[in-house]
Amino acid sequence: MNTETGRHPGLNLGSGHAEAHGEAEALVFGFWVFMMSDLVTFGLLLATYVTMLDNLAGGPGPKDLFELKPVFIETLVLLTSSLTYGMAILSLKHDPGRRVQPVLAWLGLTLVLGLAFVAMEAKDLHALLAKGGAPQRSGFLSAFWALVPLHALHVTAAALWLMAIVAQVWRFGLDTPVKTALLRLGVLWHFLDVVWIAIISVVFLGGLA
């Protein structure tokens, strides 16, 4: 292994977890690479959305469809979930007794926030349909429906993964595979924040400004 750069990006487990580091290095770096590939997907969907802004085909546009308040609440929920995820990692790293409960408690809170985000998002999309904002209506709406629900789908997948990891904690305790999985999920979870910020800025804030 090339020694100079022997540390993986993102969250670190800190002292006392050396055995996890070697494995984590390649795994977390690999996951970063995956995220960057995914970021290209989202970037291109955003670019598609921008090019489709005028393709309304006589249908409703951003100002007819979007509401700021639910998006605002969703943003707060998602940002807060990032903080709670960070707290989970901190207690994984620093809890003096290496206890499982604080980690699980923070992860549970993160999961609740994540699922709440998805639920609110689903409600918004449902409301959009009622306003005549179905994806079949126009190119613009198609682009919207490819972009925003894909993010929600990512959050759902992340929540599913979180549940699978919690099940692994229950089965194996906080062993090395669980720790490295938590590191990777952390990258995904925070990364979804970054994507969401791009989405709200271009789609909602930009559309309603």
Partner: peptide
């Protein structure tokens, strides 16, 4: 696929596709 399966309008001639 979204165009073909769910009638989206990404690449159609009509409905604001491109």
């Amino acid at each position: 696929a979204l165009d073909r399966y769910l009638d989206f309008h990404f690449f159609t001639n009509t409905g604001g596709g491109d």
